[in-house]
Amino acid sequence: MAWELATSCTNQRVVGSSQIQNEAMQIGRKEIKLNTTSRAYVDPDRINELKTISSESFDLSKLIRLCEELNICFAGECYLSMVMLTRAILDHVPPIFGSSSFQQVANNYSGAKSFKEAMQNLENSSRKISDYYLHSQIRKSESLPNVTQIDFSNNVDFLLSEVIRLLKK
């Protein structure tokens, strides 16, 4: 059933996050305790905020779609894909912060100290985990990620809120 949900969602050009949550609830998708109970990884309201931004410098359509796909993968329990999508977001947003890499954002951003520390966690921890799954070759035995291991939802939300703050007019 979860695969059917993910497949039906990916077959649509634009998928609303509230639709993902409704469909997940209808098929009996179990709620997973992150730091909050949720059927979405990226808060649908945060995605809607991104959709309202009109920027002359940055087209947010890819960032929005990456966030929507994170929710699709969360609904389908596709945790390998989720960690890879999180990494894609980190690689995608640095120009918004006037940087060429997320490492520069994490280490040099002149915003609040708490933001900097959260971004350093995203850079160090999520990148190491994604590198592990992206670059490890086949072995005799594997251990696949679970939602606890790849849960960077709070820090991703913090990152998106700062993107919104910077680009709001």
Rank of each mutant, 00 (worst) to 15 (best):
G76N: 06
R65W: 02
I72M: 05
M119A: 03
R65N: 04
P95L: 13
Q104P: 00
Y109S: 11
L134S: 07
Q104W: 01
D91H: 10
Y133S: 11
S57A: 14
D91W: 05
D91T: 06
S54K: 13
K113I: 06
A40R: 11
N35R: 13
E117W: 03
S57V: 15
Y109D: 08
A75E: 00
D43K: 12
I89A: 12
V147T: 06
A75T: 01
K33G: 11
N121F: 05
L70A: 09
E123V: 04
N121C: 08
N107H: 09
L63Y: 02
P95M: 15
I129C: 04
M82E: 02
S54I: 10
M84N: 03
K30R: 09
N121L: 10
L144C: 02
I53W: 08
T148M: 05
V163G: 15
G111Y: 01
S114Q: 10
L134E: 04
R46W: 05
A88S: 11
L134G: 03
S99R: 13
N146Y: 06
E77G: 05
L167A: 15
Y133P: 00
R46I: 09
S101P: 02
V147Q: 04
I72W: 00
S126Y: 03
E77F: 04
L167D: 05
V105F: 01
A40P: 01
E56K: 14
R87N: 07
S161I: 03
I47C: 13
I164K: 14
V83K: 15
L63A: 08
I96S: 08
L144N: 04
S143G: 08
N35K: 10
K116F: 01
L85K: 14
S126T: 06
S99P: 04
D151A: 12
I89T: 13
Q137F: 02
S100I: 14
A112Q: 08
L63D: 00
I89Q: 12
R165E: 09
F152S: 11
L167F: 09
Y132M: 13
R29M: 12
I164H: 12
M84L: 07
A118M: 05
D151E: 05
N48A: 14
T148E: 01
S153Y: 03
D157L: 10
E123T: 10
G98Y: 00
M119V: 01
A88Y: 07
R87G: 05
S54P: 00
G111S: 12
C67Y: 04
L166D: 02
T36C: 15
N124H: 14
L85S: 07
P44G: 14
P94Y: 07
